[in-house]
Nucleic acid binder design. Structure first.
Lengths: 152, 152
DNA sequence: TTATACAATGCATAATATTGCATTCGAATT
DNA sequence: AATTCGAATGCAATATTATGCATTGTATAA
């Protein structure tokens, strides 16, 4: 039953992308995407993912909370990325990775420590990493890899 | 009726200090301190104060600091740039902004929080910001905007 | 002071979220 | 393939939060 992981990843994305106002609403969004689960399950997912419910001027909405679990030890990209990764974008041979607050440093270190020939180097801010790749092709490989890791 | 302001201030403190797990619990804490209100009122207070409800391993709890609220409270570029900006230079889709000491972080955050499609991300040092733009055209727009703000 | 307007609040109830329990699903083992 | 065990899930009941409406409190102007 590793449907769960996948589903929770989708939940992450939806919550990060759309304006989700209730678990029932989220259930429908998931249903449209082929994930048929009950609101109960989503309640549990929200808990697992630490998705916070915050009141806004225009009603309530969910938002992914700051995973202060950033205080992790040296870990592999595979273990870090699913936790801290938020999204990614690129131009030419540059990749900009967005992470949860305090997530940039650990991921950046993990990338560096792999010593990939595709990567010239990385620079990490608080929640943003700049990865300088050797070429467009290299950039494509790296980006693809990160996205794959994030989806697991 | 400026009881409200005072009470909300106390709510802020309590939520920041103690581990509050429900509005009912908060109501009791307030009662102990002489503030007799109903849960209804607290629901409204929570909304006003944008207090988020986040799930934790040991159950739910309330907390004030959260990214989206923080983003809304953040200063605008327009207010920051005239104060902190010094100069700017660029190459291809990169912009390097020089600021007064300690000025990089706030400006960088302000840029990020605007969520412009022109900007892939920013990385801030102490007095230098690297802005990665989506394209040359995007870089031109962003640079022009910053310069315009700086001139005001 | 009295009238007026509107913010603040309580009450009752609707809307949402959580959870105990039974059941189902999967992976591993024999 | 059958057995077993724990994770995952649905269902239904419970708990928590939000809100429409009526009422009360407060400031302001006449």
């Amino acid at each position: 039953m590793s449907q769960k992981r996948e589903r929770q990843q989708v939940v992450r994305e939806l919550v990060g992308t759309r304006t989700v106002g209730s678990q029932e609403e989220l259930r429908q969004l998931l249903a449209e995407r082929g994930w048929e689960v009950t609101q109960s399950t989503l309640s549990r997912d929200m808990h697992d993912l630490r998705v916070a419910r915050v009141p806004t001027p225009g009603g309530v909405r969910y938002t992914t909370a700051d995973t202060s679990a950033a205080a992790e030890n040296r870990a592999t990209l595979a273990s870090l990325v699913p936790q801290l990764f938020q999204r990614l974008d690129f131009v030419r041979e540059l990749i900009v990775v967005k992470t949860v607050v305090a997530g940039a440093q650990p991921i950046s270190e993990a990338i560096d420590s792999e010593g990939s020939p595709d990567v010239l180097g990385t620079i990490a801010g608080e929640n943003t990493i700049l990865i300088i790749c050797r070429s467009d092709a290299a950039r494509e490989r790296v980006a693809k890899r990160l996205l794959a890791l994030a989806r697991k």
